[in-house]
Each structure stands twice: as C-alpha cells, then as structure tokens.
Amino acid sequence: MQFRELRQEDLSTSEWMRQVELRPDRWRDDHTRSAVAVEGLEVVAAGMIWTSRVHGDRYWIDLVVDPSRRREGIGTALFAHLSGLRKDDLAFMTRGYVDEERLAFADALGATTVQVVPPALIDVVGRFALRPYDAVVPGREVPWSRLLEANAATYEWIHASWSPVAEGFAEALNEGLEDDLDLDATSVAVDASGRIRAVAMAYNDVEPPVITAETVVRDEPEGRGWSRHVSGGPSMCSPVGASPRSNSTATSAIRISCRSGPGSIPAAAGSGSSRYLRTSSRTGASRPE
C-alpha cells in the first residue's frame, strides 16, 4: 500500500469518499494536508488534517475507508501517514455522535473524550412568543458588526477554561456566519444603554436547526435571567453530564446544543433526541525518522 496527496480529481472517483468532506492537499496552507491510500491503481482510503484557526492548538482529522476494505488496518495506516504530515506537533481532535463509527475508530486509536454535549429539544410552534420582554429583539434589528462582536465574546469566555481561543480567532469564528444564521429567529437581549447582554443564535445550516443561547460575558449580573429571556428557557449551552431536556409533545422542534466553531458537527444534525455529541482528542502517531 502506498500513500500520495489527495487531488481534486480524486473527489469524484468513488461514492464512498463523499461520506466525509474532503479537499485537495494543501487547500489552505501547509497546515491543511490531505492524502489517499492506494493499492495498485485503486484508492482504498482518503483523509485530511487541518489546524483550527479558532483555537490554534490542534489538528482536526477526518478520514474514510472503502467499505469493502474496512477492518484491514488501512485506516490506522492512513492515520499514521497523516500524522507524519503535520507541520507542528499538535494533538488530533475529532467529533461526532456517540454511536458513530468515527468515534469508535478514534477510541481504538487511544483517543480520550474531552467534551460531551447532551441533546435537547425546544417546542417552536409559538416561536415569536419567546420574546415577551421589551429588551429582546430579533437579530436582524441589531447592527451586524455588534452581533459578530457578541458572538466572539461569548465563544471566548465559554472556552476559556478548557479550550482557549487563538489570537485573532474572531475572523475565523465568524466566517460564513451570515449565511448560517436565521436573523429573524435569532434573539438578542439589549439593555437600556444599548449593550448586548445575551444572544440566542438560531442556525439554519443544518436540519433540524440549532439554537445556542448564552450571556455575552461570564460574570453577567442576572445572567441566567438574560439567557431565559432570549431563549424561552434555561441557558442552552449544557455542561458535560447535564441531563437532556425534551418536550415529547412538540409538533415542531429545534435541537439545542453548543457549537464549537466553523466546520463543527452540530449536535442538531441527524435525528433522534438521544444522540450525544462527543469531542475526542488523540496525540499524533510517532513521526517517521
């Protein structure tokens, strides 16, 4: 078995390669590497690694093996090859649902769980009734630049204790946000002075949509109250180990979860409210001499 760089033309050769989002080798810079495993003239596996521009302390990894060739050690061999392509000696991270094969593969490589996000559902039949407070306005009524600032500030303090952000992270975090948000469904709590106190972001880039709700700063006076104002319920970014909240009578619902930056797999994707999103970390394989 041999390895080579993943090329643009490889992306259209096999249906199974479309199970993950792949890009050609060095699509952004030397920290974004892609490769394929080849036997004869046949590509049997493909994968890519890329650094997080938001955090800067990890490589994300994604790979896929031809279903007819799985459990032959091909994925493990490709992981070792990709590990050797890292420009910096940073750990790998991946995420997915607890019942997905990708996490079973990560566990087999020795990955450890660093975060679990429980699912929850919120009834949205009376969506506009979630704004009973004068301080809460639709996202469309807030200047876009201020909404971006609030999003970055919220993300920074939420991750400060366990996954600090990199310098200049805001640009990468907010990239493409305008295309992802439903600005009419997004709710913003603004106090009398005009300061944004809390935001409930409604993302429509997945099905079902995702809502995240939290205060803009950690030590916000009456922070829990502000979160309730914008979301219609408790703070939506649930800590590890929290019990999921659901409404079994809802005829229309939005999954609530925490997002973890551009390219993340949101906890709302897929069906079934019992699915937990898990993020795992694994140090790289030994570099070749």
Rank of each mutant, 00 (worst) to 15 (best):
264 S>M: 15
54 V>S: 11
243 S>I: 08
45 A>P: 04
78 L>I: 05
75 G>S: 08
223 G>T: 12
7 R>N: 10
33 R>Q: 11
262 P>F: 13
170 A>D: 02
288 P>D: 02
260 S>G: 13
88 D>N: 09
246 S>A: 14
107 D>Q: 07
274 S>L: 11
230 V>Y: 00
127 R>W: 10
216 V>N: 07
141 E>T: 12
37 A>C: 09
209 P>T: 04
247 N>A: 03
217 V>M: 03
126 G>I: 12
125 V>H: 12
282 R>I: 09
64 V>F: 04
94 T>H: 06
71 R>P: 01
78 L>Q: 02
217 V>K: 10
270 G>A: 06
127 R>N: 03
171 E>A: 15
207 E>G: 02
199 V>I: 05
231 S>H: 13
82 L>S: 01
173 L>D: 03
33 R>W: 03
219 D>Y: 00
226 W>Q: 06
37 A>S: 10
182 D>G: 01
234 P>G: 15
219 D>I: 11
53 R>W: 04
87 K>I: 11
102 R>P: 01
168 G>S: 12
121 L>G: 10
13 T>I: 13
4 R>D: 13
200 A>T: 02
174 N>M: 07
146 R>G: 02
122 I>A: 09
260 S>L: 12
167 E>G: 05
178 E>I: 01
93 M>Q: 11
78 L>E: 00
131 R>G: 03
253 A>I: 09
129 A>I: 03
136 V>P: 02
10 D>A: 11
133 Y>E: 02
109 L>W: 04
254 I>N: 00
186 T>D: 01
124 V>I: 15
81 H>F: 09
6 L>F: 06
118 P>H: 09
103 L>P: 03
195 R>G: 05
229 H>L: 14
52 S>W: 08
67 P>R: 06
78 L>V: 04
179 D>S: 14
133 Y>N: 05
214 E>F: 09
134 D>E: 12
90 L>V: 08
14 S>W: 14
61 I>H: 00
112 T>G: 13
240 V>H: 11
167 E>N: 10
123 D>H: 05
192 A>R: 01
45 A>M: 03
180 D>I: 06
93 M>R: 06
275 R>F: 00
51 T>N: 03
118 P>L: 10
270 G>H: 05
125 V>L: 06
256 I>V: 13
74 I>S: 07
116 V>D: 03
56 G>D: 04
124 V>E: 09
236 M>G: 05
52 S>G: 14
92 F>V: 10
12 S>E: 14
84 G>P: 01
185 A>Q: 02
241 G>T: 08
95 R>S: 14
178 E>S: 13
275 R>C: 09
67 P>Y: 00
119 P>N: 06
72 E>N: 11
